[in-house]
Structures are given as structure tokens and as C-alpha cells.
Amino acid sequence: MARLTVEHLVVRFGGCQALDDASIVAEAGHVTGLIGPNGAGKTTLFNVISGLVTPKSGRVVVDGRDITHLSPTKRGRAGVARTFQRLELFGMLSVRENLLVAAETQQRWARAGDDVAARVEGLLERLGLADVAGELATSLPTGLCRRVEVGRALAAKPRVLLLDEPAAGQDDAETRSFATLLRQVAADDVAVVLVEHDVRLVMGSCDVVNVLDGGRVLACGTPDEVQHDDAVLSAYLGAGRPA
């Protein structure tokens, strides 16, 4: 059974059909890519999965449990964590505290404080944030902020991790190390869903790529298959391209 199954989602904003019967599947241990032109509905799909937007119809299932009608908080408890394309960091907290809040929430009422602190320090180290752990989150450059968002999502011990353009604002070297990190996270029995414009990151780290356009899934397959799909090429390059 797939970790995350999204079936036949339909979302309308006024006259705009943001999602039109979109379905994707994300397996644990895999990085599932989600690409498409601007306005294809990628972020809306994330918003539906994390409960910030209610779909007109369709289902969101995690580990066989239908979470379509759960509140965002309950979905978070069910193990769905995400980052935001437009950063949603806690600006009045330090980088370390940003991660701590998420880690503590998962810990509930258990009193094993050291465990949480150690896990947060480990994550800071892994994401290369140890040097800036004491700084206010908003004082950091965008690339670092994105890593803080990823760290915060990871601190919640997610089963499904939704990453919305995590590599925007990072340079080549950082993107490469980020791809490695993604593979490691996925290997830890997490279903990673990645929305990204950086084609190299997508092609280099994803097991499966879904191409979204106009709210529909145009194609789904390995990065190689998708790159040669006619429907994808026409969506990206225009229908009338020379053969």
C-alpha cells in the first residue's frame, strides 16, 4: 500500500479550475517529483494534502487512512509535514527554536527532553545550520531560510514530507548536497514529495516524476520516461514545436 494516495482531486477558486481530477501516489522510501509550469496547481495540491484548502471532491489517503476531512493539525499529527514556497518561518524565534517547536509538538506529553534537544542538534548539523542556530530565523538569507523550513518539517518526524521548491535560492553545490539529503530522508521510510523548478535536482533525486499542467496530471513515470513524453514536451515547449 502506498504511503500517500491522492485521488481525483478537484479544486476551484471562483472560475479558475486549480485542480481538475488530479491523482498522485507517493511511496515510502521514494522521492516523488511534482513538476509543471507556473499555475499548474502544484502548490494547491500541497495545500489540499496538508488541509489548508478543502477540495470540492476527491480523497487524500495516508497509509490507508482517509484524511480528507481532518483539520490541518490532525493531518500534521498523522505524519504529513510540509515546507512553504512563500516562507512561513517563525521570525521571532531563533533557528534552533524553530526546529524545537516542531520536535516538541511530536513529542506530546512524554518527558524525555534531552532526546528532543539532541535530535534537533543533529538536524541542525545535518542541514548545515549549526553555525546560525542562535540567530533569529528572519535574519537569514533566503537559501538558509529554506533549509530551516526543511529542518522544521523533518523535526516533526514526518511520514510524508511535502517540499515546495526547497532549492530556490540555493547555489549549485548546496543543491547537490540537498539532493543527497533528500535521498537519505527518503531512505528513512519517508515518502518525500518534491515540487521544484530545478530540473537537475528533480531528475537527479526523484524516483518517480509527476507532471502537472492545468490542474491535471499529464504524465507519470521515471525521470527518463517523463523527459521524453510527448504530452510533457508540448506542455513545456508549446504544441507547435519543430519535430
Binding site: 496538508s50 488541509g51 489548508l52 483539520s71 490541518p72 493539525t73 490532525k74 493531518r75 500534521g76 499529527r77 498523522a78 504529513v80 509535514a81 510540509r82 512553504f84 512561513e88 518561518l89 517563525f90 517547536v101 516542531a102 509538538t105 511530536q106 522544521r152 518539517a153 523535526a155 516533526a156 514526518p158
Partner: peptide
């Protein structure tokens, strides 16, 4: 919104 997404 961010708080909710990790289950607060």
C-alpha cells in the same frame, strides 16, 4: 498555518 502542518 505552519504550526498546524506539523501537528500543533
Amino acid at each position: 498555518a505552519a504550526c498546524a502542518t506539523f501537528g500543533m
